[in-house]
Simulated scan of single mutants.
Amino acid sequence: MANPTDHDKTKSGTLFLFVGPSGSGKGPLLRRFRETYETDERFHFPNRVITRAVHMPDETHIHATIEAFANAEEGGAFSLHWHTHGHRYGIPGHTLIELQNGKHVMINVSRTMVEQAREFGFPVRIFHIETPLDTSFKKLKARGRESEEEIAQRLKRHDLPYPDEGDILRIEIDGESEEAFEQANVVVQEILQEP
Protein backbone atom coordinates (compact mmCIF):
# COMPACT_ATOMS: atom_id res chain seq x y z
CA MET A 1 0.00 0.00 0.00
CA ALA A 2 1.22 3.51 -0.78
CA ASN A 3 2.54 5.61 2.03
CA PRO A 4 -0.46 7.62 3.27
CA THR A 5 1.76 10.66 3.80
CA ASP A 6 2.32 10.79 0.02
CA HIS A 7 -1.31 11.68 -0.75
CA ASP A 8 -2.52 14.87 -2.41
CA LYS A 9 -3.76 16.86 0.59
CA THR A 10 -5.88 19.14 -1.57
CA LYS A 11 -7.89 16.15 -2.74
CA SER A 12 -8.08 13.98 0.37
CA GLY A 13 -11.20 13.42 2.43
CA THR A 14 -11.66 13.98 6.15
CA LEU A 15 -11.34 11.15 8.67
CA PHE A 16 -14.14 11.35 11.23
CA LEU A 17 -13.40 9.39 14.41
CA PHE A 18 -16.22 8.47 16.80
CA VAL A 19 -14.69 7.86 20.23
CA GLY A 20 -15.88 7.55 23.81
CA PRO A 21 -16.35 5.04 26.61
CA SER A 22 -18.31 1.82 26.19
CA GLY A 23 -22.04 2.45 26.27
CA SER A 24 -21.69 6.15 25.49
CA GLY A 25 -23.79 5.96 22.35
CA LYS A 26 -21.10 6.39 19.70
CA GLY A 27 -22.28 3.28 17.81
CA PRO A 28 -25.89 4.49 17.45
CA LEU A 29 -24.65 7.97 16.49
CA LEU A 30 -22.42 6.52 13.78
CA ARG A 31 -25.35 4.41 12.51
CA ARG A 32 -27.41 7.59 12.29
CA PHE A 33 -24.74 9.12 10.07
CA ARG A 34 -24.58 5.96 8.01
CA GLU A 35 -28.34 6.06 7.45
CA THR A 36 -28.04 9.68 6.34
CA TYR A 37 -24.98 9.55 4.12
CA GLU A 38 -24.42 5.95 3.02
CA THR A 39 -25.81 6.59 -0.47
CA ASP A 40 -23.77 9.80 -0.79
CA GLU A 41 -20.70 8.98 -2.91
CA ARG A 42 -18.63 11.49 -0.96
CA PHE A 43 -18.65 9.19 2.10
CA HIS A 44 -17.28 5.78 3.02
CA PHE A 45 -18.27 3.70 6.06
CA PRO A 46 -15.82 0.80 6.46
CA ASN A 47 -16.96 -2.22 8.46
CA ARG A 48 -14.66 -3.02 11.37
CA VAL A 49 -13.18 -6.50 11.72
CA ILE A 50 -13.75 -7.83 15.26
CA THR A 51 -13.09 -11.16 16.96
CA ARG A 52 -16.51 -10.90 18.62
CA ALA A 53 -19.39 -12.65 16.89
CA VAL A 54 -22.30 -10.63 15.53
CA HIS A 55 -25.10 -10.56 18.12
CA MET A 56 -27.52 -7.88 17.01
CA PRO A 57 -29.30 -7.40 13.64
CA ASP A 58 -27.97 -3.85 13.27
CA GLU A 59 -24.32 -4.79 13.82
CA THR A 60 -22.27 -4.31 10.68
CA HIS A 61 -18.83 -5.56 11.68
CA ILE A 62 -17.03 -8.50 10.09
CA HIS A 63 -16.35 -11.38 12.46
CA ALA A 64 -12.89 -12.95 12.41
CA THR A 65 -11.37 -15.75 14.46
CA ILE A 66 -8.40 -14.80 16.63
CA GLU A 67 -6.10 -16.74 14.30
CA ALA A 68 -7.45 -15.03 11.18
CA PHE A 69 -7.20 -11.63 12.84
CA ALA A 70 -3.60 -12.26 13.91
CA ASN A 71 -2.70 -13.28 10.36
CA ALA A 72 -4.31 -10.09 9.03
CA GLU A 73 -2.37 -8.00 11.56
CA GLU A 74 0.90 -9.62 10.58
CA GLY A 75 0.09 -9.14 6.90
CA GLY A 76 -0.55 -5.41 7.30
CA ALA A 77 -4.22 -5.70 6.35
CA PHE A 78 -5.39 -3.03 8.80
CA SER A 79 -4.87 0.73 8.81
CA LEU A 80 -5.62 0.73 12.56
CA HIS A 81 -5.94 -2.17 14.98
CA TRP A 82 -6.19 -2.56 18.75
CA HIS A 83 -6.97 -5.08 21.49
CA THR A 84 -9.38 -4.25 24.30
CA HIS A 85 -12.04 -5.86 26.51
CA GLY A 86 -10.91 -9.34 25.44
CA HIS A 87 -11.46 -8.69 21.72
CA ARG A 88 -9.43 -7.49 18.75
CA TYR A 89 -10.58 -4.69 16.44
CA GLY A 90 -9.31 -3.66 13.03
CA ILE A 91 -10.04 -1.00 10.42
CA PRO A 92 -9.41 -2.33 6.88
CA GLY A 93 -6.39 -0.90 5.08
CA HIS A 94 -8.43 0.24 2.08
CA THR A 95 -9.77 3.02 4.33
CA LEU A 96 -6.62 5.02 3.57
CA ILE A 97 -7.16 4.61 -0.16
CA GLU A 98 -10.70 5.94 0.18
CA LEU A 99 -9.31 8.99 2.00
CA GLN A 100 -6.64 9.48 -0.66
CA ASN A 101 -9.39 9.44 -3.27
CA GLY A 102 -11.20 12.27 -1.54
CA LYS A 103 -13.90 10.39 0.37
CA HIS A 104 -14.91 11.34 3.90
CA VAL A 105 -14.51 8.29 6.15
CA MET A 106 -16.43 7.70 9.39
CA ILE A 107 -15.26 5.07 11.88
CA ASN A 108 -15.77 4.03 15.50
CA VAL A 109 -12.34 3.60 17.14
CA SER A 110 -10.68 3.29 20.51
CA ARG A 111 -9.54 6.56 22.07
CA THR A 112 -6.04 5.05 22.09
CA MET A 113 -6.00 5.14 18.27
CA VAL A 114 -6.51 8.87 17.85
CA GLU A 115 -2.84 9.89 17.78
CA GLN A 116 -1.99 7.13 15.31
CA ALA A 117 -4.86 8.20 13.07
CA ARG A 118 -3.62 11.79 13.12
CA GLU A 119 -0.20 10.60 11.95
CA PHE A 120 -1.67 9.50 8.60
CA GLY A 121 -1.68 13.16 7.63
CA PHE A 122 -5.32 13.43 6.56
CA PRO A 123 -7.67 16.05 7.99
CA VAL A 124 -9.18 14.57 11.17
CA ARG A 125 -12.29 15.53 13.13
CA ILE A 126 -13.13 13.74 16.36
CA PHE A 127 -16.55 13.31 17.90
CA HIS A 128 -15.95 12.49 21.56
CA ILE A 129 -19.20 11.07 22.95
CA GLU A 130 -19.81 11.49 26.67
CA THR A 131 -22.64 10.10 28.77
CA PRO A 132 -23.34 9.57 32.50
CA LEU A 133 -21.91 6.36 33.97
CA ASP A 134 -25.33 4.98 34.92
CA THR A 135 -26.62 5.54 31.38
CA SER A 136 -23.64 3.68 29.95
CA PHE A 137 -24.27 0.79 32.32
CA LYS A 138 -27.93 0.57 31.28
CA LYS A 139 -27.03 0.61 27.59
CA LEU A 140 -24.39 -2.08 27.97
CA LYS A 141 -26.75 -4.26 30.00
CA ALA A 142 -29.52 -3.82 27.43
CA ARG A 143 -27.22 -5.09 24.68
CA GLY A 144 -27.12 -8.44 26.43
CA ARG A 145 -23.66 -9.34 25.18
CA GLU A 146 -21.79 -9.42 28.48
CA SER A 147 -22.14 -10.31 32.13
CA GLU A 148 -22.33 -7.59 34.76
CA GLU A 149 -18.72 -8.38 35.70
CA GLU A 150 -17.60 -7.86 32.10
CA ILE A 151 -19.59 -4.63 31.91
CA ALA A 152 -17.91 -3.44 35.11
CA GLN A 153 -14.52 -4.08 33.51
CA ARG A 154 -15.52 -1.99 30.49
CA LEU A 155 -16.74 0.87 32.67
CA LYS A 156 -13.41 1.13 34.49
CA ARG A 157 -12.25 3.19 31.49
CA HIS A 158 -15.40 5.34 31.44
CA ASP A 159 -13.77 8.49 32.79
CA LEU A 160 -10.47 8.18 30.93
CA PRO A 161 -9.11 11.74 30.67
CA TYR A 162 -9.28 13.20 27.18
CA PRO A 163 -7.62 16.43 26.01
CA ASP A 164 -9.41 19.49 24.65
CA GLU A 165 -8.03 20.11 21.18
CA GLY A 166 -9.21 21.99 18.12
CA ASP A 167 -10.25 18.92 16.12
CA ILE A 168 -12.41 17.47 18.93
CA LEU A 169 -16.13 18.08 19.38
CA ARG A 170 -17.44 16.92 22.74
CA ILE A 171 -21.01 15.65 22.54
CA GLU A 172 -23.05 14.79 25.61
CA ILE A 173 -25.73 12.11 25.28
CA ASP A 174 -28.08 10.96 28.02
CA GLY A 175 -30.24 8.39 26.29
CA GLU A 176 -30.90 8.40 22.55
CA SER A 177 -30.44 11.94 21.29
CA GLU A 178 -31.22 13.40 17.88
CA GLU A 179 -29.60 16.55 19.20
CA ALA A 180 -26.23 14.75 19.26
CA PHE A 181 -26.55 14.00 15.55
CA GLU A 182 -27.48 17.60 14.83
CA GLN A 183 -24.45 18.89 16.76
CA ALA A 184 -22.05 16.61 14.92
CA ASN A 185 -23.70 17.15 11.56
CA VAL A 186 -22.98 20.88 11.78
CA VAL A 187 -19.28 19.99 11.61
CA VAL A 188 -19.84 17.60 8.71
CA GLN A 189 -21.85 20.16 6.74
CA GLU A 190 -19.15 22.81 7.27
CA ILE A 191 -16.56 20.48 5.78
CA LEU A 192 -18.82 19.58 2.85
CA GLN A 193 -19.22 23.26 2.05
CA GLU A 194 -15.48 23.95 1.99
CA PRO A 195 -14.20 24.81 -1.51
Rank of each mutant, 00 (worst) to 15 (best):
G93N: 11
P46S: 09
Y37W: 08
F18P: 00
V114I: 15
L17Y: 05
A53C: 09
D8G: 05
S22G: 00
A68L: 14
R52K: 14
P57A: 06
S79G: 07
F16K: 07
D58N: 15
V54A: 12
V109A: 12
G86C: 04
I62W: 00
T51R: 03
R31L: 07
H83P: 01
G86E: 08
K11Q: 10
L15S: 08
H83A: 11
K9H: 08
F33L: 11
M56T: 15
N47E: 13
D58G: 09
P57H: 05
G90A: 06
G23C: 04
H7I: 15
Q100G: 15
K9I: 12
R88F: 06
A77L: 08
E74D: 08
L29W: 02
S22H: 00
I50A: 02
T95F: 04
Y89D: 04
R88P: 01
L29F: 05
T14D: 05
D40W: 05
D40F: 09
P57Q: 02
T36Q: 12
H85S: 09
G23R: 02
L80M: 11
L15M: 07
V19W: 03
R31S: 14
M113P: 03
G27F: 08
H85I: 03
P46N: 08
K9R: 08
T65N: 14
K11W: 00
E98S: 11
N108M: 08
F18N: 05
T14R: 07
A68I: 12
M56R: 15
Q100A: 15
H7K: 11
T10D: 10
T60W: 01
F45I: 06
R52M: 00
F69R: 10
A72Q: 13
T51G: 02
T95M: 13
F45K: 02
D8H: 09
P46F: 06
A53H: 14
G25A: 07
D58P: 01
H63L: 10
R32W: 00
N108I: 09
E98M: 13
L15R: 05
G93F: 10
T95A: 09
F45Y: 09
H85N: 13
S22Q: 04
S24G: 07
R42A: 11
G76E: 10
R88I: 07
H83K: 14
P92H: 10
F78Q: 02
A68Y: 05
A77N: 06
